[in-house]
Design a protein around this nucleic acid. Structure first.
Lengths: 187, 187
DNA sequence: GAAAAATAGTGAGCCAGGTCACAGGTGGGG
DNA sequence: CCCCACCTGTGACCTGGCTCACTATTTTTC
């Protein structure tokens, strides 16, 4: 639970016990079952989530009901609808679990508090935000340059374990292709 | 020059004169002509750039020589190859001007120094990084959901001024379509 | 101010990937 | 143990967008 968080934080910054106690006190813990939503499109989202265990999908559903997966959130990931989180508007996306999950929740107030009281935490989140930006940019490139089957191959190389945790249809809506096309790729 | 930076910073945080002097002393100023590169794919990039005036493109060129535009950097934008900047590797992208530009340069050392000495600056960069992440995520969504002509229309609505500053071919490689397809869109 | 280089538009043909429809497999709940 | 809901594969067909080729126009460059 919390040691997972500490281990994760200490990959980037080092913390005294008292610092970590303050940090830990800012989070609340929650356990959710498969298929539950942490939030849905339209909700106000004023929390961010640290995934201790389990797997979730961040999805956007368009008018016609088609669902696109923006990202998978798994162990040691931070996720939220950051636009809603930052600007206080309604969420454009939903965050739904694909497995039972153990989550730590950080409210926006506590996020701000942590950034102010422990400057190292602001740095930590800065690193994470930049990493998120880099990842999203690479996804843009990949969508523009690479064919569906290229993207599929790259994912297999980068996250081989993921393949066994999700269904093919789920995978397809992450890769940005139809279920049928993905099915035909492997041959 | 520097008042542009101060105005920009004070949209998010407020600064005393002494604080701003420290900040300003961390930047160096540079003027570049149209078509110059601030860096190229493969370079080490240990600086980030604040655009005072002018317009640049952040591009990725693939093996076949085809060029994709990741983003346009214009007045009041920060740009760099953030992966190279963060992790110290070679740049995957190039940053090239489309117009004459006035740039302020912040080295990685000074970036770190500013974040440490003026916590407000860490917060500022955190906001900007999150905003960058949000923007890139929306681009991912748009590439997955929308047709070329949708993306074209959206761009016209969001950045009408941009259209008059760039060529159609440049625009096409930002939208992720071929020059010919873009030409046929307007019909 | 002519030659060279970008920039634009347009036709023709092609193909990756989308949609629709159907059929077989799998698994967990009652 | 069976049923229903979900997942997966596959065929048929269609279309948005790509490539190639050529021409016209505008912009640079010397």
């Amino acid at each position: 639970m919390e040691h997972a968080l500490r281990r994760h934080l200490e990959e980037l910054i080092s913390l005294s016990n008292t610092e970590f106690e303050l940090i830990a006190s800012c989070f609340t813990s929650r356990r959710i079952k498969k298929k539950e939503f942490l939030f849905r499109q339209g909700d106000r989202v004023s929390e961010m989530y640290f995934i201790v265990s389990g797997l979730l999908k961040l999805i956007y559903t368009d008018e016609s009901g088609k669902e696109r997966i923006l990202s998978f959130a798994m162990e040691d990931w931070w996720e939220s609808d950051y636009e809603a989180f930052e600007r206080g508007g309604p969420a454009k996306m939903s965050l739904q679990s694909l497995e039972n999950c153990q989550i730590l929740i950080l409210s926006k107030e506590n996020f701000t508090k942590l950034c102010n009281e422990i400057p190292k935490m602001a740095q930590f989140f800065l690193h994470k935000a930049i990493a998120g930006h880099i990842a999203a940019q690479q996804r843009v490139l990949s969508l523009m340059n690479d064919s569906a089957s290229d993207r599929f191959d790259q994912l297999i190389q980068r996250q081989p374990s993921l393949i066994h945790r999700i269904s093919k249809s789920t995978l397809a809506s992450y890769l940005g292709v139809s279920r049928e096309t993905l099915s035909r790729l492997s041959r």
